[in-house]
Structure formats: structure tokens, C-alpha cells
């Protein structure tokens, strides 16, 4: 765009176009700075201090909190594996299921709108409510899951009192919540693919599997990359479903990173330590996200 009004006097040495650009983003910048960037720095400041109830002076302690968190076996051997395991399992399962569903829905059939309405439902349900439903269904004494197991003559399982079964319940909730999101995005991707390669494949009598493997999948990759990156970042910071289903228990065995930081800060009331954990987590995910984006991006370019 050329500047149509060059006669206005410059403001801070900026021309009219730049001033317009800055004015457009000013409110968003304001919200971002005051309610995200300032708190992040407050938290970073707190992470270097002994910010706990027993020390009202908030003594500067340097890296003590960081060293504590990085040496805490709970953080290293439970929280980090849980967080990344959960991320990988959740994204992997929802991507696979979402893709399968998208392929099934990518055709015209009667009752399609009904299926689409039903799979839209989990996207609208609050994660807290989904977690409550799962908690109720997996209740060890009265839950429907154990009733069904009983029907098949299997022994009831105390789902939420063991680490791996509780983890499974959390994972099921997350997959239930997010598979529809993958389905919708991948379905939109499928519908926007050009028809020519598929027609060519049909003329060559390619099997459905080979069409999927060599045409659909490569052409869907850009959409899949965006989905995987966004969902991985979100899965890393999962809080509400873990908190509602297991509360990080039994015995902190299902704690993920967000729960760890929250518990350190608000239950053990050691705010400095919670902040240090939060800062460490933020660094991990920002670098992870950038690396993931780069790797997947390269993968897309190679496949072109």
C-alpha cells in the first residue's frame, strides 16, 4: 500500500502507515504485556527468591529453587516422563483415530450430519465435566466400566488408585476430548485436496491402501503438522483433566508438569519453588515447540 496522506506531520519519526499498524495492535500488545509478560517476569523474579510463608523477607537465594527442582526425583523421574508420555500418547492416539474418522466421514451418506453433530459434542464440553464423567464411569465400586467388566466375568479394577490405570483413564478422557478436533481439521484438509491425483490413481487401478499411503497422506502432511504442533503444546500444559480425575495421585504418581508447579506453589505454599518449576517447564516447551516445528516442517518439505 502506498501512503496516501504524506502531508500529516510525523509522530515519533514514524510514517502514517507505521502509526496505523501500531495503533491496530496496541490494545492486544497492552493485554499481552500487562497480563502475560509482566506476570512471567514476576514469576521469574520469584523463582530466584525464598518466596514462602516462613520467609516474609523473600530473600534472594539465586539458583537454589532451580537446583531443587532439577534434582527432585519426583520431577525428573515421574513428572517429566508422565508429561512427555502423556503428550506422545495423547497426540498419537487422537491423530490416528481422528484421521481414521476423517477418512470415514469424507464421503456422502445419509445421517452424516448426525455423526458430525455427535463428534462435535466433545469439543464443546468443558474438560472439567469430561473429567467428572470419566471419574464417575471409572468409579471402582459403582462405575459403569466395572459393571461391564463384571458382565464379562472379569474382576473389577480399582482404576483411580493405581498409577497406570489412572493414567489410562486420563488418557482416554483426553483422546475423547481431542479426537473430534483432529477429525474436523483433517476432514477440512481432505475436502480441499485437488481431485486430479485421485482420478489418475483410479485410472491406474491403485489399491485404496496405496492411494492413501502415496497420495492422501503426503498431501495431508501440512495440515497434520499444524495439528501435531498445536496439540503437542496444549497437551504439555494439561491441567484440568488430570486435576479432576486423579489430582496427581495416587501418591503423586500421575502428576504432570502443570500439576507439579501448582502443587508446589499452592499446596506446599512454596511459591519460589513452584515458579522455578514453571519457568523450567516454559523453557522446555518453547524449545520443544520450536524444534518440533522445524523437524516436522523439514519432513513436509522432503515429502513434496
Amino acid at each position: 500500500m502506498s501512503s496516501p496522506t504524506a502531508t500529516r506531520r510525523p509522530f515519533l519519526g514514524l510514517d502514517e502507515k507505521k502509526r496505523f499498524m501500531l495503533a491496530l495492535i496496541a490494545p492486544a500488545v497492552f493485554a499481552l504485556v500487562f497480563f502475560q509478560i509482566v506476570p512471567i517476569f514476576t514469576g521469574a523474579n520469584a523463582s530466584f527468591r525464598d518466596w514462602a510463608l516462613h520467609d516474609p523477607k523473600r530473600t534472594w537465594v539465586g539458583l537454589k529453587n532451580y537446583l531443587y527442582v532439577l534434582r527432585d526425583p519426583e520431577f525428573l523421574f515421574v513428572v517429566l516422563p508422565n508429561t512427555f508420555g502423556f503428550m506422545a500418547a495423547s497426540v498419537g492416539c487422537s491423530l490416528g483415530l481422528g484421521l481414521a474418522l476423517a477418512l470415514l466421514l469424507n464421503r456422502k451418506f445419509r445421517g452424516r450430519w448426525l455423526v458430525q453433530t455427535v463428534i462435535l459434542l466433545p469439543l464443546m464440553v468443558a474438560p472439567v465435566i469430561a473429567a467428572i464423567m470419566i471419574r464417575w464411569m471409572f468409579n471402582d465400586q459403582f462405575g459403569i466400566v466395572n459393571v461391564v467388566l463384571d458382565l464379562f466375568g472379569l474382576a473389577p479394577v480399582a482404576w483411580l488408585t493405581q498409577r497406570w490405570t489412572a493414567f489410562l483413564a486420563i488418557l482416554i478422557t483426553d483422546v475423547w476430548l481431542w479426537t473430534p478436533w483432529f477429525t474436523l481439521l483433517l476432514l477440512a484438509g481432505l475436502q480441499s485436496l485437488p481431485p486430479e491425483p485421485f482420478e489418475a490413481a483410479q485410472i491406474d487401478a491403485a489399491t485404496p491402501w496405496r492411494v492413501f499411503r502415496h497420495i492422501t497422506l503426503p498431501m495431508l502432511r501440512p495440515v497434520m503438522v499444524v495439528c501435531i504442533v498445536i496439540r503437542s503444546i496444549d497437551a504439555f500444559r494439561t491441567f484440568d483433566i488430570v486435576w479432576t480425575i486423579s489430582g496427581g495421585g495416587p501418591a503423586r504418581a500421575t502428576e504432570v508438569f502443570s500439576i507439579y508447579a501448582y502443587v508446589e506453589a499452592f499446596q506446599f505454599l512454596n511459591f519460589g519453588r513452584g515458579s522455578a518449576a514453571a519457568v523450567i517447564g516454559a523453557f522446555i516447551i518453547v524449545f520443544f515447540a520450536m524444534g518440533l516445528y522445524r523437524i516436522l516442517n523439514r519432513w513436509v518439505e522432503v515429502s513434496k
Partner: peptide, 23 residues
């Protein structure tokens, strides 16, 4: 602005909601 948005979208909620309590 776009890179700022991308980076701050990645920051986990818990990293700024804890200090937001104090802010």
C-alpha cells in the same frame, strides 16, 4: 508481532497464572 505471538502461545498457562495471582 507474529513471532512474539507464536512464542507466547507456547508458554504453559501455569507459568504465568501462578504469578498472576500476585499481580
Amino acid at each position: 508481532w507474529f513471532s512474539l505471538i507464536y512464542v507466547f502461545r507456547c508458554v504453559p498457562y501455569v507459568s504465568w497464572v501462578l504469578p498472576l495471582y500476585f499481580v
